[in-house]
Computed example of a mutant assay.
Amino acid sequence: MKCESNLTETLSKIKPCSTVQPTCPGPKVINDPCYKCEEGWEQHGGKCYYFSIRKSSWEQSRDECRAKGGDLVKIDSREEQSFLERKLRDVMTEAEDKFWIGLTDSAVEGRWVWVDGSPLNERLQFWSGIDPDNWKGHNGEHPDGEDCVRMGEKGGADDLKCWFDAFCSKPHRSICEKAAVKGQIKNVCD
């Protein structure tokens, strides 16, 4: 049974997909085929996403995601990038209103690594324009350059290319991710 919520559906609207048997010989637990996310998280492709409205540094954003049981988002497919790009397009209020993702080259300059330790796949990257350019600021006030990645393009991105390297200390909103869980329903008869 396929159970994909569309973007506007809230968790409360996902619940009806739970199959409750009309005849019921007594309390029993049945496996619910639907992926579940807790309130405030959005389900897509078996993952749960949390779009934080709090603006904080990349490290603080990551700490907040981990405190919620997830981590900053890792983008594993073009389809996932497409989902996120469309979603951000709708929630960004200005061009600079971008979101941190779980990608950084702070350990070794130019070697981009996801928060789970895996290297960035050369065939699956969505840099915008000349980025990453490791800009050091107008007067070189950021000698380490731009080591963290934010994404989003208010008007929509050409070919989904909307990743930008940025100073990790800059406050931005962020996208957290964790695995969705398949629920169980206890069927109790009247």
Rank of each mutant, 00 (worst) to 15 (best):
S106Y: 00
A107G: 00
A107E: 08
A107R: 10
V108W: 00
E109M: 06
G110L: 03
G110S: 10
G110W: 03
R111W: 00
R111S: 12
W112G: 03
W112Y: 10
V113E: 11
G117N: 08
S118C: 04
S118W: 02
P119H: 04
P119N: 04
P119F: 05
P119S: 10
L120E: 01
L124S: 02
L124C: 00
Q125R: 13
F126Y: 13
F126G: 02
F126D: 01
W127Y: 06
W127P: 04
S128F: 14
S128E: 13
G129I: 05
I130Y: 08
I130H: 06
I130G: 11
P132G: 10
D133F: 09
N134R: 12
N134M: 06
K136A: 08
G137H: 10
N139Q: 14
N139F: 13
G140C: 11
G140P: 11
G140L: 10
E141T: 08
H142P: 00
H142T: 12
P143L: 06
P143W: 05
G145L: 07
G145E: 09
E146N: 14
E146R: 15
E146C: 11
E146F: 00
E146Y: 02
E146S: 11
D147C: 04
C148V: 01
C148D: 06
C148S: 15
R150C: 02
M151R: 05
G152L: 02
E153G: 00
E153T: 11
E153I: 01
E153H: 09
K154C: 01
K154Y: 03
K154N: 07
G155Y: 06
G156P: 08
A157L: 03
A157V: 03
D158H: 14
D158L: 14
L160G: 01
L160A: 02
K161I: 01
W163S: 05
D165H: 10
F167N: 15
F167T: 13
C168L: 05
S169I: 13
K170A: 14
K170Y: 15
H172W: 05
H172Y: 15
H172T: 04
R173S: 13
S174I: 04
S174N: 06
I175W: 02
I175M: 02
I175H: 04
K178S: 04
K178W: 03
A179P: 12
A180G: 06
V181F: 04
V181A: 08
V181N: 05
K182P: 00
